[in-house]
Design a protein around this nucleic acid. Structure first.
Lengths: 124, 124
DNA sequence: CTGTATCCTACGAGATACTG
DNA sequence: CAGTATCTCGTAGGATACAG
């Protein structure tokens, strides 16, 4: 978890939600957990570009922000499951809207993003 | 404008939109421009926490991503106006949904955010 | 299967001072 | 009023290696 030195100025909803959703993989984590992919290894497979460490960091932040809960099963090998809280669930439609717009405009988005990359060569 | 060294992996809409919306003030810039606050000084007043430089940087990125256009009036003193493109306009409902959720849950959000601040003391 | 501890780097963003 | 040039710094996130 990162230690924050500065204190943000939170004026509007756009700001507040940013605090909680800022983090490269958070929206996708919430999304996949909502889809029923709850175990760390599963999430890791769904988001292979993220390192295990960062996934854990962001999951812990989501937990602290009360968007997900973490349940540990005392078995060997260890088993952990993340679930959305009610609060987290209420965010899913918003994330859905964002993702839909992104999917619907993926063509266009790839174009404009490609234009701004200095060493162009998009990964896929 | 920042020079990017790494090349992102863009798999899904959530990823793609992130590329274009990542930036501390971009959503609010789009929002305010959509509301008709088009001039730099106006936007600066709306978002006083951002420095002029960063506002310009992010506006230029939004322009390159074809979400806004920039129009210069050849008068003295100089006058500039930003407007949403059709592409940019199509994003507004999404930003609206995000902002609404944030506003609707601002109480709760402030709480959970406060808990995670190490040197607590929220600005407002 | 889980998670944590180090170390390291790119880059977002602020401050300030300057030009047209 | 609008924009750019430097300089600087914090920190998010990757790599790797290890531990329960």
């Amino acid at each position: 978890m990162y230690e924050r030195k500065t204190t943000p100025n939170l004026n509007c909803g756009l700001d507040l939600i940013g605090e909680v959703l800022y983090g490269k993989w958070k929206m996708r984590l919430l999304w996949f957990i909502g889809q029923g992919h709850k175990r760390p290894s599963e999430l890791q497979r769904k988001i292979p570009d993220a390192s295990r460490r960062v996934l854990n960091v962001q999951l812990k932040e989501l937990e602290q922000h009360e968007l997900v809960t973490r349940k540990i099963y005392p078995v060997v090998p260890p088993k952990v499951e993340y679930s959305l809280t009610e609060f987290g669930k209420s965010l899913i439609p918003v994330i859905g809207a964002i993702g839909e717009w992104g999917d619907a405009n993926s063509e266009r988005l790839r174009e404009v993003i490609a234009k701004t990359l200095t060493h162009s060569d998009i990964g896929n």
